[in-house]
Design a protein around this nucleic acid. Structure first.
Length: 884
DNA sequence: CGATCCCGCCACATT
DNA sequence: AATGTGGCGGGATCG
C-alpha cells in the first residue's frame, strides 16, 4: 500500500484537485495490485511531468494538499514498510514512478488511506506514548497538518478526542502539548467513575441491551436522566463557572468522546453499539431523537471511534442481535482501574496506574469535570491546567501532581532508556551494533509501535493497520529506546504498555529488551526505585530468582544495565508479584542461569561481550519475543507482530465474550507469571555475540490484565542482535524457518527472520517464547496446536531452564545462544479477522491462555508439557506457519 | 444498500 | 477583521 501511496503521491499531481475521473474506474483501488494502469487512460490528467513538477512545487508551496501528499508518502513509508522492503520497493518505485507507474499509481489514494484512523495513527506515531516528563512536546497544529498532509480540520478531530483523554492539552492557539498516555489510566478511571454515576444504571441495563435491544438505550436514558446526564451536558452549559463562556457548544466532540468512553467503562460487556451510544449521547444532549441528529451523532461517533481505535482502546466488532448485526465497538483498553492508585505493586496489573496515592488527589480534577460535576468546560477538559491560561504548557507545573509523579518515574524510566540508548548509540557506532541502534532511534515509529503493543491491542483498523504494522517499519520502532519510559507509565490499565518499552542496548554486546509489561511494576518501580538503574541491575541479578518479582517495567531500568547488578533483589515491588507467580517463578529461575550474576551488568556492558548471563524467561508471553527477534534481525517487523498479536488478541477477545475467559486467563497468567524478567543472555562466546535480555515479565501484571487486554502484548522483551553478531540466533519471529537453516543467513538478515534455530550449531539457542522454551536443538516440527503460549511458557520454562542451563551455562561457546523465541504472530499473516483468527494457532500462541479463552487448551498445553519441546517447535512452526 | 466517514462550508470564538 | 475552532451534514466510498 505504501508503495502505492508513495508512488502516487509522488509522481502525480495533486490528486485531489484533479477531477479525478477515476472514481469510477477506480473501483479498483487496487492498493495492492501493483499499479494498475487502468486509470491512466481515462484520466484526463495531464501529467506532464516536468511541467507539472514545477507546478507542483509551486503549488505545493501554496497548497497544502500537495504538500500533504508528499508528506503522506513519507509517513507511510516509515510506518509501513520499513526498510526491508524498501529496497525492492524502492526500486519499484523508482521504476514505476518514472516510467509507467506514475499515472496509474497516482490513483488516488483510496478513501482508506485518508481515513481518520490512519491519520490518527500517523499522528500518534509522531509522539512517544510515554514521553519523558522532562520533555514537553508541543504540537503545532499547522505543522502536523502539513506533515501529515491533511487539513487542519482533521487534526482537530484527532486532537479533540485526545484532549478528552488528556493525552494532549491545548496550550495556546494552534499549539497543543503532548502528554502521552501517562495519565491515561487516571483519566479512564475518572471517566469510569463519572460514568458509573451517570450511566451506572445503564450498565445494568446494558446487559440486557445487548441481548435485546438497544432499547435499553432509551431506558437508560430514562434512568439516567435524573442522574447525571445532565452534568455532562451541563458542562457544556454555561454553568461552568469559569468558563467564561462555554465555548461553542462546548466542544461536543470532546464531551462526546468522554461520554463514549464512559459507556465502555461502565458497560459490563465492554461493548457498545453505535446506535446505543448515539442515542444516549443525543438524549443527554437533549435532543430528541431527530433522525438527522441521530445520524450526525453517529457520524461523530465514528470520528471518535476512529481515534480511540488508533489508541487501541476500542475495536470494532459487531454484535448480532436479534435484529441483525449491528456495528459496535468493544473496549480493549484497560478495564480496571482499581483502586486506582493504590495498588501499586502488586497485584494486578491493571490497577494502578499511578503510583499510588498521590494520584488520588489529582484525579479529581480531570474527572471532576467529567463527573457529575459537570465538566467545566475548560477546566475539566483540559485538565485543569489548561485553559486557564495557558499555563500549562511546557512548564511542568504543579498543577497536576499526578502528572508530576508520573513524570518522575517516567522520567526515570526515560533516563534509563536514554542511557541505554546512548549506549546503544555508541555501540552502534561500532559497526556491529549500529544497525540495531538505528532502529532504536526512531522515535516516532516507536510510539506507534509501542502503543499498539502495549495497550492495545491493536489498532484500529485492522485492516488497514495491519498492513502497516506488519511492515517492518514498525518493528523498528518498537525497539526504540525511548519508549521504554512509556512502559511504566501506563500503569494502569493499559497495562501492557509496558510492553512497549523495550530497550535495546547494544552495548557491546548486550542488548536488553524489556518488555514492560506490567504496569504495576512500573509503578512500583518508580516508586521504589527512584533509582532505576539500580534496580535494573537487580532485576537482572535476580533473574535467577527473578522470582517474578520483578516487574517488567523495570526492564527499562534494566537499561541502566549498568546498574544491573545481578544481585539486587528486586524485591520491593515484587512482593506481590512474587506471590503470584512464585511458583512459576521458580521455574524460571531455574532457567536462569546466571553465569555470573554477580557482576554488575555494567560490567557486562562494558566489556562488551560477555557477561554473565542469566536468562530469565519468564513467561512473558512471547509475543514480545517474537517481535523482538525480528527486530533484531531486521528490525523489521517486530512490532508488527506485536501489533498483530494484539490484534488477534483483541480479536479473540472480542466479541462478546467478554470476560470470562479473560478473567481466567488473567488469573492463570498470573500464576504462570513469572515474571521473568528478562532474559539475559550473554554470549559466552563473548565475542561478537551479544547478549540478550529479555524481560519477560509482564507477568503479573500482565497477566492480570490480560484479561483485559492485550495480554498478549505483553511482549516484553526484545532481542536485539548486536549487529555484529550475526551469528546469533535469536529470533523471535514468528516465522520460523525451518529449523535451522537460518544459520547461514547470516547474520543479520537471516536472523531477522527466522528464528534462528540455528543456533544450535553454534550455540544453543534458546527460545523463549512466550514461554516456551525450546531447547536448542529441538527439532521443531511444526505441528502444533496452538497452545496458549503462556502457559506453556511456564511449564516450559522449567524445561528450558534446564536445557538452558545446561546449555548455556555450559556452553559458553555459544553465543548466547539462547535464543529466544518469540512467537509472534506473524505479521505476515494477514491480519486476520477475528473470526478467522480465533482458531488460529497463532493466536493461541501468543495469546496466552487468555486469549484463547479456552482454558482447556491451555491446560492441555500444560499437560502436555511433554510437548514442550514440541511446543517450542510449534511455536516455531507456528511462526512459520503464521507466516504463511 | 447500509455502514462509514471524508470533506469542507460556515458559524462561533479568539486574537 | 482575521484567524482559530469545531459543528455539522452532504454525499462519496466501502463492504
Amino acid at each position: 500500500e505504501n508503495i502505492f501511496d508513495r508512488c502516487r503521491m509522488a509522481p502525480k499531481t495533486p490528486i485531489k484537485n484533479e477531477p479525478v475521473d477515476l472514481s469510477k474506474q477506480k473501483g479498483c483501488t487496487p492498493e495492492r495490485n501493483p499499479i494498475t494502469p487502468v486509470k491512466l487512460i481515462d484520466r484526463p490528467q495531464p501529467d506532464p511531468w516536468t511541467p507539472t513538477a514545477n507546478l507542483k512545487m509551486l503549488v505545493s508551496a501554496a497548497s497544502p494538499d500537495m504538500r500533504d501528499r508528499e508528506k503522506k508518502k513519507e509517513l507511510f513509508r516509515p510506518i509501513e514498510n520499513s526498510e526491508q522492503n524498501d529496497i525492492p520497493d524502492s526500486l519499484q518505485y523508482d521504476t514505476v514512478d518514472d516510467s509507467t507507474v506514475d499515472e496509474f499509481e497516482k490513483q488516488r489514494p483510496s478513501r482508506k488511506q485518508k481515513s481518520l484512523g490512519l491519520l490518527c495513527q500517523k499522528f500518534l506515531a509522531r509522539y512517544p506514548s510515554y514521553p519523558l516528563s522532562t520533555e514537553k512536546t508541543t504540537i503545532s497544529l499547522d505543522e502536523v497538518a502539513s506533515i501529515l498532509g491533511v487539513g487542519r480540520r482533521r487534526i482537530y478531530d484527532i486532537v479533540n478526542v485526545l484532549e478528552s483523554l488528556h493525552l494532549v492539552s491545548r496550550v495556546a492557539k494552534n499549539q497543543y502539548c503532548w502528554h502521552g498516555r501517562h495519565n491515561l489510566s487516571q483519566t479512564l478511571k475518572t471517566l469510569q467513575e463519572a460514568g458509573e454515576l451517570q450511566y451506572g444504571e445503564l450498565a445494568t441495563i446494558q446487559c440486557k441491551e445487548q441481548d435485546t435491544e438497544y432499547r435499553c438505550g432509551e431506558r437508560r436514558k430514562e434512568a439516567v436522566p435524573g442522574s447525571q446526564d445532565r452534568p455532562l451536558l451541563d458542562v457544556s452549559e454555561p454553568d461552568c463557572a469559569s468558563a467564561s463562556a462555554n465555548s461553542r457548544k462546548d466542544k461536543s466532540l470532546r464531551i462526546m468522546s468522554q461520554k463514549f468512553v464512559m459507556l465502555f467503562l461502565v458497560s459490563k460487556t465492554k461493548i457498545v453499539t453505535l446506535d446505543i451510544a448515539a442515542k444516549i449521547l443525543i438524549e443527554e444532549t437533549q435532543d430528541t431523537v431527530d433522525h438527522s441528529k441521530f445520524k450526525t451523532k453517529v457520524r461523530r461517533l465514528y470520528d471518535i471511534a476512529n481515534v480511540l481505535t488508533s489508541l487501541c482502546l476500542i475495536k470494532k466488532v459487531h454484535v448480532t442481535e436479534e435484529r441483525g448485526r449491528k456495528p459496535a465497538f468493544k473496549w480493549i483498553g484497560p478495564v480496571e482501574f482499581p483502586g486506582k492508585l493504590d495498588e501499586p505493586r502488586g497485584h494486578s496489573p491493571t490497577s494502578g496506574p499511578l503510583p499510588g496515592a498521590q494520584r488520588g488527589a489529582c484525579a479529581p480534577y480531570q474527572i471532576c469535570a467529567t463527573g457529575k460535576r459537570r465538566f467545566t468546560r475548560h477546566a475539566s477538559f483540559n485538565g485543569a491546567q489548561p485553559y486557564e491560561g495557558t499555563k500549562r504548557k511546557v512548564s511542568s507545573e504543579p498543577n497536576s501532581p499526578r502528572q508530576e509523579r508520573q513524570d518522575e518515574y517516567c522520567s526515570k524510566m526515560i533516563n534509563l532508556a536514554t542511557v541505554c540508548r546512548q549506549k546503544i548509540e555508541e555501540d552502534s557506532r561500532n559497526p556491529s551494533i549500529a544497525s540495531p541502534l538505528a532502529l532504536l532511534p526512531l522515535s516516532r515509529d516507536s510510539d506507534f509501535c509501542v502503543n499498539p503493543l502495549s495497550q492495545a491491542v491493536f489498532p484500529v483498523v485492522q485492516a488497514d493497520v495491519p498492513s502497516l504494522l506488519l511492515p517492518n517499519g514498525v518493528s523498528s520502532q518498537a525497539l526504540h529506546p525511548s519508549s521504554p519510559a512509556a512502559s511504566k507509565t501506563d500503569n494502569g490499565k493499559p497495562a501492557l504498555l509496558p510492553s512497549q518499552p523495550f530497550l535495546c542496548f547494544p552495548s557491546s554486546s548486550l542488548f536488553m529488551l524489556c518488555g514492560g509489561l506490567q504496569e504495576n511494576l512500573l509503578e512500583e518501580n518508580l516508586s521504589a526505585a527512584g533509582d532505576v538503574g539500580n534496580r535494573s541491575a537487580e532485576e537482572k541479578a535476580s533473574p535467577l530468582e527473578a522470582q517474578g518479582t520483578v516487574p517488567p517495567a523495570r526492564c527499562q531500568k534494566r537499561s541502566s544495565q549498568e546498574g544491573a547488578s545481578p544481585s539486587a533483589p528486586i524485591g520491593d515491588e515484587e512482593p506481590v508479584a512474587k506471590k503470584q507467580s512464585m511458583e512459576q517463578t521458580d521455574v524460571p529461575l531455574s532457567l536462569v542461569v546466571p553465569k555470573k550474576p554477580a557482576e554488575s551488568p555494567k560490567a557486562d556492558c562494558a566489556p562488551g561481550s560477555s557477561c554473565a548471563s542469566a536468562v530469565h524467561l519468564e513467561a512473558f508471553h512471547l509475543d514480545l519475543s517474537s517481535s523482538a527477534a525480528p527486530e533484531t534481525a531486521d528490525k523489521k517487523s517486530a512490532k508488527t507482530l506485536d501489533s498483530q498479536q494484539q490484534e488477534k488478541w483483541s480479536q479473540n477477545k472480542d466479541p462478546d465474550e467478554p470476560s470470562p475467559g479473560k478473567d481466567h486467563i488473567s488469573k492463570e497468567n498470573a500464576n504462570q507469571t513469572f515474571v521473568p524478567q528478562y532474559l539475559y543472555v550473554q554470549p559466552t562466546a563473548g565475542l561478537s555475540s551479544f547478549n540478550f535480555l529479555f524481560s519477560a515479565n509482564q507477568a503479573p501484571g500482565a497477566i492480570g490484565l490480560a484479561a483485559s487486554q492485550l495480554p498478549s502484548l505483553s511482549v516484553p522483551c526484545v532481542v536485539v542482535p548486536s549487529a555484529a553478531l550475526a551469528s546469533f540466533p535469536v529470533v523471535c519471529s514468528p516465522s520460523v524457518p525451518s529449523p535451522l537453516s537460518p544459520v547461514p543467513d547470516g547474520s543479520s538478515a537471516a536472523a531477522s527472520m527466522n528464528i534462528s534455530m540455528s543456533g544450535l550449531a553454534s550455540t544453543a539457542p534458546v527460545f523463549i517464547g512466550t514461554t516456551a522454551v525450546v531447547t536448542p536443538n529441538a527439532s521443531l516440527s511444526p505441528s502444533m496446536d496452538p497452545q496458549p503460549a503462556a502457559h506453556t511458557a511456564v511449564h516450559l520454562s522449567p524445561v528450558l531452564a534446564r536445557s538452558c542451563s545446561t546449555v548455556k551455562l555450559d556452553s559458553p561457546l555459544c553465543m548466547g545462544h539462547p535464543v529466544a523465541l518469540l512467537k509472534l504472530q506473524q505479521p505476515s499473516s494477514t491480519p486476520v479477522t477475528p473470526k478467522s483468527i480465533r482458531p488460529a494457532r497463532h493466536e493461541a500462541f501468543f495469546k496466552t491462555p487468555g486469549s484463547l479463552g479456552d482454558p482447556g487448551a491451555w491446560k492441555k498445553s500444560e499437560g502436555s508439557q511433554a510437548r514442550n519441546a514440541s511446543s517450542v517447535q510449534r511455536r516455531l512452526e507456528i511462526s512459520s506457519t503464521s507466516t504463511d
